[in-house]
Nucleic acid binder design. Structure first.
Lengths: 168, 168
DNA sequence: AGGGGTTTTAGAATGATTCTAATTTGATAG
DNA sequence: CTATCAAATTAGAATCATTCTAAAACCCCT
């Protein structure tokens, strides 16, 4: 369970990450951060937008998307993706099983990992849910794309320093 | 590794399931089934459509969606969902962790399950992928929706038999 | 040949997300 | 205090996968 100081700490991490990233903590952005640090309901963009608007009625959807993008870049929010791309299908193994998803080329490989016996029942007993299926995906870079990356990077200079700016 | 008879067997299961479901195995549907039983690339609807069109050029996207829908209903295909609904966000725990997703009301709960130590590295060693994050979701019906279901079902008659029909 | 269902079609509708070009904002220098 | 300028924000258009819809095509059976 989250205590008040947990939330304060989370909020401070988020703010620090954005400042380090070189962007301003504007009132509207601050409100998005606050909702995300507070809510345990896994809100979607529409939820966030509606809530921010209670305080800043002129806020647009684009601002919420913009703030989330910044938080994603800095690892300050976990996105549960339901709409990244087109659905993919597996007709050879119609039972749920783990996959390896390449973030670069969208290749998807099956992964052979036996599922713990009776896991659905165990989770059901603990949480009250009636579990019917699972989804376990590992995301990363496939061997091919790693090679491509190496050749692209070889002989390239280091990063350029990002700009920094005073807050609002 | 899939052998020819594996594929034949898979195909036969799919066909049998659709026949049992009471729909015809038309040439276009048969081609969708064949691709799904054969392909190890987790195709999306566009891929399937393009491939079916090589054999049946007049095939529409709607037919592919229709066939997939039938296969999903009968449990003959695994859908890796990337576009079911709006994305959801967790700002309290930005690290990847397991979730319980209610299929009825879309409620999402965090699940406390410690991740096996060094799992990313182990998978990397086995597959060559450079794993950077995971996603583990359990899908089911939350306690609230189970209650609603029970009250809705109490005193209701059984199912009506489905129609059955000769094939094309 | 005709009836009556299923299947298929093209195109419109939907909905989340991304893009774009214009406007607003706020910190800062003069 | 005002002008300046980049960052922030906006409304609305564009995109894209998916779903919906109403009409047309198809097939079996008499």
């Amino acid at each position: 369970m989250a205590t008040g100081s947990d939330i304060q700490q989370r909020l401070e991490e988020m703010r620090a990450a954005l400042v380090k990233r070189g962007v301003a903590i504007t009132p509207k952005r601050a409100k998005v951060l606050e909702i995300l640090a507070t809510s345990d309901e896994h809100p979607n963009v529409g939820d966030l937008h509606a809530e921010v608007q209670r305080w800043h009625p002129s806020t647009s959807l684009a601002t919420v998307y913009n703030t989330i993008e910044l938080l994603k870049e800095t690892g300050q929010v976990l996105e549960l993706e339901f709409s990244a791309a087109a659905n993919r299908y597996d007709g050879r193994r119609p039972d749920s099983h783990p996959h390896l998803v390449c973030l670069e080329c969208q290749r998807i490989d099956d992964l052979e990992v036996p599922e713990p016996e009776g896991i659905f029942e165990a989770i059901g007993a603990e949480t009250g849910y009636e579990v019917v299926r699972q989804r376990l995906d590992y995301y990363g870079i496939c061997p091919n794309c790693q090679k491509k990356r190496e050749s692209r990077l070889s002989g390239q200079a280091g990063f350029v320093a990002l700009n920094d700016r005073a807050n609002y």
